[in-house]
């Protein structure tokens, strides 16, 4: 086999690609099981309880439920490849069309959250490591412990109560105030970008006031993780001889941090960036409910409650795909970003 001639890193890379492919396949198989095999009445779940017997029979045939399981799976795969995710009983539209609206909303929220969590988490982790066992370190530890332990949906509610109801400094639920709703033409589906594209600064700032609270609440758990990891990575570096050598050359704290430690932990930071991004997409599912955010999470949970399995399965698929891709990218970041695994 030619794989015997591959070097260590190349083989690890190939292994990871294979792993990724298997995961995707497993995701498809699991969603198939969840959507078609587990429910006692998958047809009813799709057409709804009030459907006529003809519609029921037609759907049963369309789903191929009279066929053997393997054949059903093959046709499920074929539909997926063609981007056919079926109809959502909930909205009466193709699931794909619903996702095209819901996904950008979630992406917007999660992206802003990851930016916030990184901007706060990395410096806090660095400060904690550089001031180990001082009050800064203790505060960072408490912040990250609480972040690991807090139910994100509840934190959202507390945020709404405090910042929206009491202090009135944040916009309420939804993406914009009601009277701004539907005014900007959707281009990217992300309201911050669309409103700017349309030149509607008033709507943009209104949208900012609405998104900042859910994004911050969502960011907190990710920030806790990022702080903890950054601190651990930095402490590991601070013990290295090269740091002593840099100090022996006369470099000060700031220079050590910026020129020596950060370049060494960049790859690790990219890795946790990807991992937390995946985690945020998940966290968004529950946060969206609290903030009436019209994203995947809200779409999925509404579908869950009425048993609209097509929609549930599609959301699982989309979030799972994002999650797996991000994890995959975080693993292969080493191969591309670290000079040590490069040409050497």
């Amino acid at each position: 086999m030619s794989s015997d001639t591959l070097g260590g890193p190349a083989r690890a890379f190939a292994g990871r690609v294979l792993q990724f492919a298997i995961s995707i396949f497993a995701l498809i198989a699991v969603t198939f099981t969840i959507g078609r095999l587990l429910p006692t009445d998958p047809v009813g779940a799709i057409v709804g309880e009030l459907a006529s017997p003809e519609a029921y029979a037609a759907m049963r045939e369309r789903l191929g439920l009279d066929q053997p399981v393997i054949w059903q799976f093959v046709s499920y795969l074929r539909d997926l490849v063609h981007g056919d995710l079926g109809f959502a009983a909930m909205t009466g539209r193709p699931v794909l069309d619903d996702l095209k609206i819901a996904f950008p909303a979630t992406l917007e929220l999660a992206t802003l959250a990851i930016i916030i969590s990184f901007i706060l988490g990395v410096p806090l982790g660095l400060a904690a490591a550089f001031n180990r066992d001082t009050w800064i370190d203790h505060i960072a530890r408490i912040i990250s412990l609480v972040g690991h332990s807090i139910p994100v949906f509840w934190f959202g509610i507390v945020g709404l109560v405090v910042f929206y109801a009491w202090l009135q400094i944040a916009g309420g639920p939804g993406r914009v105030d009601v009277f701004y709703e539907g005014l900007v033409p959707p281009v990217t589906g992300m309201i911050l970008i669309d409103s700017l594209l349309a030149g509607e600064t008033a709507i943009f700032w209104n949208a900012v006031s609405h998104i900042i609270l859910p994004a911050s609440m969502l960011a907190y758990a990710a920030m806790a993780y990022i702080t903890r990891m950054t601190r651990a990575f930095t402490l590991e570096q601070l013990n290295q001889d090269y740091v002593v050598a840099a100090r022996a050359k006369g470099a000060g704290q700031a220079r050590i941090l910026m020129h020596h430690i950060l370049p060494n932990i960049t790859v690790q930071l990219v890795t946790i960036l990807a991992i937390s991004y995946g985690g945020l997409l998940e966290g968004a599912v529950v946060t969206e409910i609290v903030f009436s955010w019209p994203g995947l999470g809200q779409y999925m949970t509404s579908a869950l409650l009425i048993g609209d399995m097509n929609a549930v399965v599609a959301c699982t698929m989309v979030i799972g795909l994002m999650f797996m891709t991000l994890n995959f990218l975080s693993d292969i970041a080493y191969a591309f970003l670290d000079p040590r695994t490069g040409e050497g």
Binding site: K249, N264, D338
Partner: peptide
Amino acid sequence: RQMQSLRGNRLSLIMQDPRYSLNPVL
């Protein structure tokens, strides 16, 4: 700060193992 301007300038330290005392990513 004064020590920093001495170190590497008028006072230097060569350490044992270049594999560890050189920064691996620079």
